[in-house]
Each structure stands twice: as structure tokens, then as C-alpha cells.
């Protein structure tokens, strides 16, 4: 398993070289998104207020301290369960040119197919270990859609975000799904052994 250090925005070549299990450290702007703002974009048809060509999006809703108009200091910025936002993968890749989705828990088989098709990856952030990520932030540059607080779109500049684990690569690999499918097979065996099947 290889180690990579990449800078956002990401090119297709940047992400096509990655394989599941590789570790990636990111520098540059990462956009914080989640349920509320993605519902606004895709269900209420309000286009995002910022260009996401080559962007890395992080599933998050941070704890912040307001220090001025649209200006915030990070208190604790982590990640949230990605699967809730799974149905937005296609729109993000096809319509807006996103190259990396960062979150925890993985995405579906369908999302993995889309990532292969459009050239994108899922980078697994260590869920719950937000203190570490918070110290990797240089600044919260700006915030869009503050009315959705805390589910705004956050423009965060990171220095050395990670190491992240490639959970889905652009070649059809989906580590979390593989682990779960193996666990399901194992469960059938275990139930038999426990005299239940």
C-alpha cells in the first residue's frame, strides 16, 4: 500500500493513481458539505455558490466560534457517516466535477461504479478522531449558506489532512463494502456454528 501527498483541486490523474488501502494526505481547500446543503442543491435545485471542479468534499458539520461576518474559527471539525448522502454522488461527480469525497463509513456499490466512470475517489477519514483533524486546519476561509448553520458549506484550508485511507478507488474497488460482504458470509458460518442457521 502506497502513500500519497496531494494538493487540491485534484486532477483525474491524481485520483486514478490511487488504490484502496493507500494512504493520502491532502493540502489545500476542502469543502465541508452534508445533508442540509446537499438537499438544497439536489432536491431544491439551488446550484452550489462555488466552483467544485476537481474539488474534495468532506462530509462534516463543524463546531466553530464566530469571530466576524462569515468568519469562523474552528473548535472541532470532524466527519460524519457518508452513506446518508450516498444518493448525491452522481450529481456531485457528473454535474459539478468533484474528484474526492471524504467521510466515514464508506459509500455504496453504485457510488463506486460512478467513481470508476467519472474518475473520483472516496477517502475514509477516521471517524470520531476529530481533534486530530482540527489541528490540521490552517483556516476556515469562508462559509456559504449560513442560514443552514451548522449545515452550511464550509470552505476550509487544510495543511496535511490525514493520513486518509482510500476506501473507494477509481477502478471499482470498495474496501468497506468488501469488508462488510465478507463479514456477512462469515456471519452465516457463525450462525451455523452457534446452532442457529
Amino acid at each position: 500500500m502506497a502513500e500519497f501527498h496531494l494538493h487540491t483541486p485534484l486532477s483525474e490523474a491524481d485520483v486514478r493513481q490511487l488504490r484502496v488501502g493507500d494512504s493520502v494526505t491532502l493540502d489545500g481547500v476542502v469543502f465541508g458539505v452534508r445533508d442540509g446543503n446537499l438537499i438544497r442543491i439536489f432536491d431544491n435545485k439551488v446550484p452550489p455558490p462555488v466552483n467544485w471542479q476537481g474539488a474534495a468534499l468532506l462530509h462534516t458539520a463543524p463546531n466553530v466560534k464566530k469571530i466576524g461576518p462569515a468568519k469562523y474559527e474552528p473548535i472541532c471539525v470532524g466527519t460524519t457517516t457518508s452513506m446518508r448522502m450516498d444518493r448525491f454522488t452522481e450529481g456531485l461527480l457528473k454535474d459539478y466535477g468533484v474528484r474526492a469525497i471524504l467521510g466515514k463509513g464508506g459509500l455504496s456499490e453504485q457510488s463506486a461504479k460512478l467513481m470508476q466512470q467519472y474518475g473520483a475517489v472516496y477517502l475514509s477519514v477516521t471517524g470520531g478522531a476529530a481533534a486530530m483533524e482540527t489541528l490540521q486546519i490552517e483556516a476556515i476561509e469562508t462559509v456559504y449558506w449560513e442560514d443552514l448553520m451548522p449545515e452550511c458549506i464550509w470552505q476550509i484550508r487544510f495543511k496535511g489532512l490525514g493520513p486518509l485511507t482510500v476506501g473507494i478507488d477509481a477502478h471499482g474497488g470498495n474496501l468497506q463494502l468488501d469488508v462488510q460482504q465478507q463479514a456477512q458470509q462469515k456471519t452465516a458460518e457463525l450462525l451455523k456454528k452457534m446452532g442457529i442457521a
Binding site: T60, A61, P62, N63, I75, C76, V77, G78, T79, T80, T126, G127, G128, A129, A130, A131, M132, T134, L135
Partner: peptide, 14 residues
């Protein structure tokens, strides 16, 4: 992250 929470008085998770 556990250590940062304890030593730097930081929230461990968001």
C-alpha cells in the same frame, strides 16, 4: 485524538 482531548482540552469528536 484521545490524548489531544485530555492534554489540549479539545473536543475529541465533532
Amino acid at each position: 485524538s484521545i490524548e489531544l482531548g485530555r492534554e489540549k482540552n479539545m473536543m475529541v469528536c465533532q
